[in-house]
């Protein structure tokens, strides 16, 4: 009997709804973690506190969505087991959130694009036919609305501030834009869930997001490409095909937990 020469891929999750919960939870876990990297390093004390608030809200949401995912999976995994003991290829976050923070302009631009996405999708999911998803989404929507207010304010300040701030945030948007189409792609899972009224109809939500984003960008005296179809866009996060950044991030995030398997903290 020879040993297998290839490590078997993890089994695909049994439910579409489980898949959706992982996507929503992982988006927030990864973004919350990225934002927490700013603690102690923000441009001014008031902003250190503000960014930490957003990080805390996102991690709180991640906890709830991942906990629900674990329950649905039915294998005894809780939110910590999912957060700390999955490999990068098992994560279901979009690529946008796993990128390194860059400068404050990059962080704010990314936050703005995500917050707008969160508001339109959570708003739709608050009407989900799944009662758990509906309740979690309604609660998270309140926080997302507040986050969007904060990131819009900063996009305006940076876009219409000094020449330097304008340059930096414009450059950030130029780099980030190709990561946005992934947010609204409906693969098989998303399409089936939308038909059942459980998950959001992502392509249908895109125009609303696009309008919101373009309105703020224009007010901030910034520009965006007119037509996303000519911009090469990156995807794969929903299927576990991430950038190299996620592996490094998880190595740091998971190291203590993985060094003491089975331990309580």
């Amino acid at each position: 009997m020879t040993a297998p020469s290839v490590v078997p891929a993890p089994a695909p999750p049994p439910h579409d709804e489980l898949e959706l919960l992982l996507r929503i939870g992982d988006d927030r876990l990864v973004l919350g973690h990225r934002l927490s990297e700013w603690c102690g390093h923000a441009p001014i004390l008031e902003e250190d506190i503000a960014l930490a608030n957003v990080a805390l809200d996102l991690l709180g949401q991640a906890t709830l969505f991942l906990r629900r995912a674990g329950e649905l999976e039915g294998q005894g995994r809780d939110e910590d087991a999912l957060a700390y003991f999955r490999e990068a290829v098992e994560f279901r976050n979009c690529l946008l959130v796993e990128l390194p923070n860059g400068d404050f302009g990059f962080t704010i631009a990314r936050q703005f694009l995500f917050d707008a996405f969160a508001v339109v999708t959570l708003d739709a999911m608050a009407r989900s036919t799944s009662p758990e998803l509906s309740a979690l989404s309604a609660k998270s929507l309140k926080e997302a609305t507040y986050h969007l207010r904060h990131s819009v304010e900063w996009v305006l300040k940076l876009g219409d501030g000094t020449d330097e701030s304008h340059r930096r945030v414009q450059r950030a948007l130029d780099e980030l834009w190709r990561f946005t189409p992934e947010l609204f792609v409906a693969d098989g899972v998303a399409a089936r869930l939308a038909v059942q009224g459980i998950g959001p109809d992502l392509p249908a939500l895109r125009p609303r997001w696009d309008t919101m984003v373009r309105e703020v960008i224009a007010r901030a005296t910034l520009t965006l490409p007119h037509d996303a179809s000519h911009t090469p866009h990156l995807k794969g996060g929903r299927a576990g095909m991430h950038t190299e950044h996620l592996g490094h991030m998880l190595a740091e995030m998971q190291i203590v937990a993985r060094s003491h398997p089975g331990a309580k903290w």
Binding site: A52, L56, G60, A62, T63, I255, H260
Partner: peptide, 20 residues
Amino acid sequence: TRAPSLRRKVALIAKVQDEA
């Protein structure tokens, strides 16, 4: 970034935030 559980992670962020 290395806090070993989500509960400890949020508690630590909140603490550091309080210090700010």
